[in-house]
Nucleic acid binder design. Structure first.
Length: 885
DNA sequence: CTAGTCACG
DNA sequence: ACGTACGTGACTAGC
């Protein structure tokens, strides 16, 4: 059998490993504070390769430094790249140490890149009859694929690779591996920063290479090409194309000081490797080494617990210090879920029971309500609401595992304790799905031992994760966010949910019957126009009627068929009267199903109220969301829908609904964060911000009348800026040409240069650190900021700039809610906070308290944080949510 | 269980 | 050449 040669592109794999694990970067640090994610990922890759490939010789090649013969030849080669993050740079020496401990050689050569070392050795291997495997994160190396050399390029993560053989290259690109060089010479390489020929992209480059075989031959026969813009560019850029070809060519004759004879694979050096793993804190790799277990590494010990009954409640008095507590509610909706059992303990003793009624008894109730005893829980809000139903007021929540975990990384949020624990490398607790099952089979086990073990493990996990998670919050400067905002907010939200909002079901029913009649009429008209009856709610059937039977033009398609969305139907409305009817039908059907029958289903019969649940640990930006039902999307824009709000009424006779909302809070946050002088000035002058934006970007004099259309366009531009604008997107929305939209955006950036700078800086920050943050250090990790796919990367860039704005606005209203609750209590008002709708707070209060709220609420809201522009709050009051004025 | 649609900020 | 504005939840159809 042929000898085998393994060549690894060290730099590119280390980069890949680092960015693949970037969203977990904080989980990978050793006890000295060294980041280890890239080292860990590198080892994963190595194990994966060595599992299938058994090399006789193996080498990991590294770049020697920034200066190479390519940079000498072309100044900008690899220019414009972002600085390598410090968290990565510090790992390189250790990767080399790891490589040695694994029995591979490593090598670098001044003035040359790792690619050239690999190219040269691969050629030597080819000539000496080796089968060679090259592992890299860089697709450029596929030019080295040959009959005896395969190039494995990492695909997703570090272990998922795509294998390039000459046949595979042919299949993907239609050219030979060596012709990849010619292709790149023509199209350039944006990541290595050389240009190629003007206006030639991958498609055209491949076409030309197929036609002419090589760059040289192309220029020998350039006269054969018909006159065209492309030909002009080719002639113009001949010099560049030839130079790019040299840049793109990986050397196969670099002056190496080593040869294949020097790089025999030695196999793992066990002792070195164990010492290395210990230094890095790689427990999982250590565990695989088949060594005698370490003393004291005993955290997999089965958990011991005691079943609590009415007869041994005294056991509770033996608990000491902070307590971890968990009340099991199997249904997601904790307002109505049954109680399956609970666990309470102090880290050594765990007391469990199936009987939640025991909690009402003195010793347990006293502990839970004691402000002197700190409690550790998972999802404090669910626990507060659940215990409230048992007449218990849970006090002094210190640690909430769910909340802390969400703040550390919004990406891996789950409502399952076992799942969350796993995210933090804690394995001693099962997930609910593992113990309770899923779907229809899901049930609390009858077997006591199974159930109690699971409960006790949950409490133990909460207990064990407290200190490490607090430490991580502190490292992220997120302790104030946790203790001063999110934990206090939990109580505020729990109170709002428990209070609920009164809904007049008769009002809804009356509206429902009217809607039913109207629907029947419209249906008849639609069937008449269509010439048959069909299900209007089915996009498939509707598409068939509109685009096949009635032959209306197809404007947009979806993955599965014709699009029938509003913007499409609006374009068709003047071509067939049926379209207008369908739009009407849709609007009414939506009201009927979601807002009439939907809301009627969730009114509690006991109090005629709706009790929503706010999800505090779901959104990627720090906003709340509302479920069961969603009270943050009750209709308001269209008059027919708005009527739904008539059903939302105060819970007492003589009370009123009062609401205050922030005016343009996101744009004010934008002015604050970007520090843009012009935007700040407009807000400080108290201007109508969309009008003043119009004045600036359309270059109008200060006293000019702003017509509605201009204001509308400026408003769309303002929204676009906040969302991460594209000319195409803006053009779609305001119905102008793409070039006009482009001009608006350019004007905006010229008028508000601070905003432009902020966008660039924020994206650069995200690239360097892998996350962005709000004014309170709320974080969002953006692993896709390094994605190869243009659209994924672009999306990450837009969210990078949007998240600090949307998220800071969310921070602000959260602070206001906490202050408001305190003020209501301190002033002994009867008023209650009922709803939060992102930039709006809704209250109910006795009519005589309304004047107090008129002053108090705006004052609390606009002083929640001190920005360098004023916050503005507007208030309304009325007898129902509909009648606010 | 996913896709399409539409309600909100 | 890419594919197109940020963040959500509920309902219905149809596999």
């Amino acid at each position: 059998m042929a000898k085998q040669l393994l060549l690894i592109d060290g730099n590119s794999i280390v980069f890949r490993a680092f960015f693949a694990m970037h969203n977990q970067i904080d989980k990978f640090t050793n006890k000295d504070g060294l980041h280890t994610a890239a080292i860990y990922g590198f080892k994963l890759m190595l194990d994966h390769v060595l599992d299938k490939f058994h090399p006789d010789a193996a080498l990991v090649a590294f770049d020697a430094g920034k200066v190479t013969f390519r940079t000498k030849m072309y100044d900008d080669y690899k220019g414009g790249r972002n600085k390598t993050p410090d968290e990565l740079t510090e790992q390189f020496p250790y990767v080399r140490e790891l490589v040695e401990a694994c029995g591979l050689h490593s090598y670098e050569l001044k003035n040359y890149e790792a690619d050239d070392i690999i190219g040269t050795l691969a050629k030597e291997g080819d000539e000496a009859g080796y089968e060679t495997l090259i592992v890299t994160g860089d697709r450029d190396l596929t030019q080295l694929a040959s009959d005896h050399t395969t190039v494995a390029v990492t695909h997703k993560g570090v272990t998922d690779t795509e294998h390039y053989t000459p046949a595979h290259v042919e299949e993907k690109l239609g050219i030979t591996p060596r012709q990849i060089i010619d292709m790149k010479a023509l199209m350039g390489d944006s990541s290595d920063n050389y240009p190629g020929v003007t206006k030639i992209g991958e498609k055209t480059a491949i076409k030309l290479v197929k036609q002419f075989g090589s760059v040289e031959n192309l220029y020998d026969h350039i006269d054969d090409l018909k006159k065209s813009k492309m030909k002009e560019h080719l002639v113009e850029d001949e010099e560049i194309a030839r130079q790019c070809k040299t840049l793109a060519t990986i050397l196969q004759d670099a002056p190496l000081e080593i040869s294949l004879d020097d790089i025999a694979y030695r196999g793992e050096q066990t002792e070195k490797l164990v010492a290395f793993y210990q230094q890095m804190g790689f427990k999982s790799f250590l565990a695989k080494m088949d060594l005698a277990p370490e003393e004291g590494a005993d955290d997999s010990a089965p958990v011991k617990y005691t079943e609590l009954t009415a007869d041994n409640l005294a056991a509770v008095d033996q608990l000491k210090g902070e307590l971890s507590f968990y009340l099991e509610m199997p249904d997601a909706n904790y307002h109505t879920s049954p109680f399956a059992g609970f666990v309470i303990g102090d880290g050594t003793t765990w007391l469990v029971s199936r009987d939640a009624e025991l909690l009402k008894q003195a010793p347990l109730k006293k502990l839970l309500e004691s402000p002197a005893v700190a409690k550790n829980v998972f999802n404090a809000k669910a626990q507060i609401v659940g215990l409230h139903r048992l007449g218990i007021d849970l006090r002094n929540v210190d640690f909430d595992l769910l909340l802390a975990s969400y703040l550390l990384n919004t990406n891996d949020n789950s409502n399952d304790l076992g799942q969350v624990a796993l995210e933090h490398d804690y394995h001693e607790v099962a997930t609910d799905e593992e113990v309770y099952g899923k779907g229809a089979k899901r049930a609390i086990p009858d077997d006591d031992q199974t159930f109690y073990t699971h409960l006790a493990q949950k409490a133990r996990a909460i207990n064990d994760l407290r200190d490490p998670l607090f430490k991580k919050l502190d490292d992220n400067q997120q302790t104030p966010l946790y203790t001063e905002i999110e934990v206090p907010l939990t109580r505020v939200l729990a109170a709002m949910e428990i209070t609920g909002i009164k809904v007049n079901s008769q009002t809804l029913k009356d509206m429902g019957s009217k809607l039913t009649e109207r629907l029947a009429d419209i249906e008849d008209q639609i069937y008449a126009a269509a010439g048959e009856e069909f299900n209007i709610n089915s996009t498939k059937q509707l598409g068939h009627i509109l685009f096949e039977k009635l032959k209306l033009p197809v404007i947009k398609k979806t993955k599965t068929g014709y699009s029938t969305a509003v913007d499409v139907l609006e374009k068709l409305a003047d071509q067939a009267p049926i379209v207008e009817d369908i739009l009407q039908y849709r609007q009414i059907a939506k009201l009927q199903s979601t807002y009439i029958t939907g809301l009627l289903k969730v009114i509690h019969s006991s109090d005629q109220k709706i009790h929503t649940r706010y999800l505090q640990t779901l959104t990627q930006t720090g906003r709340l969301s509302s479920v069961d039902p969603n009270l943050q999307n009750i209709p308001v824009r269209l008059p027919e829908g708005r009527l739904i709000r008539k059903a939302f009424v105060p819970s007492h006779e003589g009370w009123q609904i009062f609401s205050s909302d922030y005016s343009q809070v996101e744009l004010r946050v934008l002015a604050h964060i970007t520090g843009d002088k012009n935007l700040q000035e407009d807000f400080k002058n108290g201007e109508d911000i969309h009008a003043s934006t119009a004045r600036r970007i359309f270059h109008l004099p200060a006293d000019a009348e702003i017509d509605r259309n201009m204001r509308r366009r400026a408003k769309a531009v303002n929204f676009g800026i906040v969302y991460g604008i594209s000319d195409y997107g803006l053009a779609q929305r305001i119905h102008v040409s793409r070039s006009q939209a482009h001009e608006f955006i350019q004007n905006y950036f010229k008028e508000f240069p601070g905003v432009k700078k902020y966008i660039d800086d924020t994206i650069a920050f995200a690239r360097e650190h892998g996350y962005v943050e709000t004014i309170t250090h709320r974080r969002r990790y953006l692993p896709d900021i390094h994605a190869k796919s243009f659209s994924r990367r672009s999306f990450a860039e837009r969210t990078a700039m949007n998240t600090p704005i949307q998220g800071s606005a969310a921070d602000i209203i959260k602070i206001a809610m906490i202050r408001m609750k305190e003020e209501i209590k301190q002033r002994q008002l009867q008023a209650r906070m009922l709803l939060q709708i992102h930039d709006e707070l809704v209250f109910e209060a006795p009519a005589e308290e309304i004047p107090v709220l008129q002053k108090l609420v705006p004052q609390v809201m606009d002083s929640a944080v001190q920005l360098n522009v004023p916050l503005k709050v507007e208030s309304k009051v009325g007898d129902t949510w509909y009648d606010l004025k």
